[in-house]
Design a protein around this nucleic acid. Structure first.
Length: 218
DNA sequence: GACCAGGCACATC
DNA sequence: GATGTGCATGGT
């Protein structure tokens, strides 16, 4: 996949995730579910300003107050619950020590994250790759849409199939996988909208179909 | 005003 | 197992 080289040439190395601490990455991973990152930044800034960027502080905050603070990120009631679900699991065994929670095998961490109500495959993989800095490939709607438009997958390929495609094709390299996903998001944000032409896309057209990718993967 | 944004759980057939 | 729906703000 020389896709990667074309993307790096266009966008430069991305240096993801845009979050200062592992806890912020975990919070951002939940808040950005189906949501523009700009809105997530506002919500995290609210938490920061309220002095709540620690697990025990967040857990001590009533639902209504937490929901109000993260309101800009949308879905604020469900996301307040989802944050609490994750933080409760971490706190139960590790207190405020997020890094302690993250420091284990990918399979163990992924299994526990997926057991949290409100954390699905993309959110779990984002936390593993960008907060724990461990090798797992993150797939999202941009990844799916880009690959579909370029004829590299077909409609029946689901999350795990796409994840496996990358993980089996690339050297196992946390920094590479980190930047690769970030590059795909950059392409998606700038050139791969659901119902728009892809003018200026840095990727070769392959079997380019600008109408593909309007439906989500399963 | 329509469309879109770095998903996920749950109900129903 | 496949499909549909609720959740919600804010930028373009």
């Amino acid at each position: 996949m020389e896709l990667y080289d074309a993307m790096v040439e266009r966008f430069g190395h991305q240096q993801w995730w845009p979050g200062d601490t592992p806890l912020e990455v975990c919070i951002g991973a939940i808040l950005t579910q189906n949501t523009n990152w700009r809105n997530v930044e506002k919500a995290i800034a609210n938490l920061q300003a309220a002095g709540l960027l620690s697990i025990s502080a967040l857990l001590a905050t009533p639902h209504e107050q937490l929901a109000e603070l993260i309101r800009p990120a949308g879905y604020f009631n469900v996301k307040a619950k989802r944050l609490r679900n994750l933080l409760t699991v971490i706190h139960r065994d590790y207190g405020d020590d997020v890094e302690g929670f993250l420091n284990r095998s990918v399979s163990s961490l992924r299994e526990e994250l997926l057991g949290v109500n409100g954390i699905g495959r993309e959110t779990a993989d984002s936390i593993i790759l960008y907060a724990a800095h461990k090798p797992t490939f993150v797939v999202d709607t941009y990844t799916y849409r880009i690959l579909l438009r370029h004829g590299l997958i077909h409609g029946e390929d689901d999350y795990d199939a796409i994840k496996e495609l990358f993980e089996s094709s690339l050297a196992e390299d946390v920094e590479l996988w980190n930047d690769y996903h970030a590059q795909l998001v950059a392409v998606g944000k700038n050139y791969c909208k659901p119902k728009a032409k892809c003018d200026g896309c840095p990727l070769e057209p392959f079997d380019h179909d600008p109408l593909a990718g309007t439906q989500d993967y399963q």
